[in-house]
Amino acid sequence: MTMKVLVPVKRVVDYNVKVRVAADGSGVETQGVKMSMNPFDEIAVEEAVRLREKGAAKEVVVVTVGAQAAQDVLRTAMAMGADRAILVRTDDTLEPRAVANVLKAIATREEAGLICMGKQAIDDDMNATGQILAAKLGWPQGTFASAVTVADGRIEVAREIDGGTEVVSLTLPAVVTADLRLNEPRYASLPNIMKARKKPLETVEIDSLGVDTASRLTVVSVAEPAERKEGVKVNSAAELVEKLKTEAKVI
């Protein structure tokens, strides 16, 4: 098998960190907080590495789009088993559409046979880059994957849908986006972190790709969600059911 798997990853505020909205409402404070690889991307890296270990892929290439500091998640991905990494360097924050344009250029250059990525990033919660990328490449997509099998030039993807699982069979090349149950990612062990320091990491300046990275959304403001107001106490289950039916209209 000569398939190359491209795994796009994103550096995000660590999921343990309680984020807070900046006092001026411009966004969320990201200065000085712990950053990590997006958890869904870790799952994608793990799946790609497993495909290579099973012989279904030849090479796993990780790519991220971001500032210089984003290379630490590339190192983590390589410690988990990715073979090499590409940092597409930019100091701007890009929207999924723009990221998809960048990834399309990289996927084309690398002649990727499969793109395996997290279903969404836990910062902007967009859940869109994989689908947009698949559309732009004209590739089929297997989103929210909970299992994948590669055989005979196709990939079978079990997808998490409301209330169950759907299985689709896609021609390769394809885009797969990972959901939580796809696997449990391995630890980046200390020996592997040490070895990952020596794996190749290429830096590509975003401008050299010549793709459209403009924003289509303007962030007007970012606010904390309103705190819920204390409701009313009711005296009996019957009264509760009555209120749920007539007042809240929820049952």
């Binding site: 449990e184 990612p185 391995r186 630890y187 062990s189 200390l190 020996p191």
Partner: peptide
Amino acid sequence: ITGDMGIERNGEHGPNFTPGM
């Protein structure tokens, strides 16, 4: 010796057991 990772609640090695170094 660094800590072992991936030991489960009952003390057994889980699927992702990674020995310390």
